[in-house]
């Protein structure tokens, strides 16, 4: 009985963490798949967004939800400008240049935030209705985790619908699968890139805010979790929304369970697993096999 409750609470915690991983990583996956761009600054957008949300709530009197919207919009706008002015110059360039450029960008983000706000962790005060415990029948659980899961499900459903059912989604899918074909069909690739990039960064911002509760929020956030985000993307397959979702849940639950039962070797195990997986399927668990 207690074991069952343990498993259930572990699953809940893991799934909640997985949702955050998903929300942050989905943009990275789509932009990497769509533009073939090694964007190591993606964690930086999550960090910036998290800060925007935390500051909006603390100093500018925003509520939690409106702060999230604010963070999303602000980060998306900033990233759209960066994409047009800077990123676009490096499409099709060497990976090395992309790596350097985005590392440089992360450094600038970290340093700017440290200068403007300070190096310390930013507490993100949850509204009272999210702070308590929720009675789920067999167990009491933190309301926030349950809400996170609900939000994650809504987001993935919305993204899936957007991806599968809208014109824009169809264009993105076409461009991920075959860039040249999409161009020859008259899809405006440059506009598509900007929109996708901005949207992905906005999602990262949401993730930064929603996950601050257990990932923390300090300037180093931008690099600290980068390997995790990249792993989610690599396992899920580039440019696959559902793939990233499953991968994020898998890694969220795995990480949570491992931290609980083998607090020592958990992270190493995930790295090792990822290496084996990518050797077996370089395109990820859910990516299409390249011909």
């Amino acid at each position: 009985m207690t074991f069952g409750v343990d498993v259930a609470s572990m699953l809940l915690g893991g799934v909640a963490a997985g949702m955050v991983l998903f929300i942050v990583s989905v943009g990275l996956s789509v932009t990497m798949g769509l533009m073939g761009f090694v964007n190591l600054a993606h964690g930086g957008f999550a960090m910036l967004g998290g800060y925007a949300i935390a500051l909006a709530m603390r100093h500018w009197g925003f509520g939690f939800v409106s702060a999230l919207v604010f963070g999303f919009v602000l980060t998306a706008a900033v990233s759209a400008v960066l994409e047009r002015v800077l990123y676009a110059r490096l499409y099709g360039a060497d990976e090395l240049d992309q790596v350097l450029f985005t590392i440089g960008l992360v450094f600038m983000m970290i340093a700017s935030v440290t200068l403007l706000v300070g190096p310390e962790n930013q507490p993100l005060a949850l509204p009272s209705f999210l702070r308590g415990q929720l009675d789920l029948g067999i167990l009491q659980y933190r309301a926030y985790s349950v809400v996170l899961i609900a939000v994650g499900v809504v987001i993935v459903a919305a993204l899936w619908l957007g991806f599968e059912r809208t014109r824009l989604g169809a264009q993105i899918r076409a461009a991920v699968d075959n860039r040249r074909m999409a161009e020859s069909l008259g899809i405006n690739i440059a506009r598509l890139f900007t929109i996708t990039f901005a949207f992905g960064s906005g999602m990262a911002a949401l993730g930064g805010g929603l996950g601050a509760e257990f990932l923390g929020l300090d300037p180093q956030y931008a690099l600290k979790y980068l390997v995790y985000f990249l792993i989610v993307v690599a396992v899920g397959g580039l440019g696959r929304v559902t793939g990233v979702f499953y991968a994020a849940l898998l890694i969220g639950v795995l990480d949570f369970a491992l931290k609980k039962y083998v607090p020592q070797g958990g992270t190493a195990f995930i790295y090792a697993l990822t290496i084996l997986l990518l050797l077996w399927r370089p395109q990820g668990l859910f990516g299409a096999r390249a011909t």
């Binding site: 990976e95 390997v227 690599a234 992270t267 190493a268 790295y271 290496i275 370089p282």
Partner: peptide
């Protein structure tokens, strides 16, 4: 021997993962 079967993004990821794995192992 194993990593260099891949290229591009995957290779980049794998070099990162290998190093992170070693770091974790040293920590453990």
């Amino acid at each position: 021997l194993v990593l260099l079967r891949t290229q591009g993004l995957t290779l980049l990821m794998l070099t990162l993962c290998t190093m992170a794995l070693l770091e974790e192992a040293a920590n453990l």
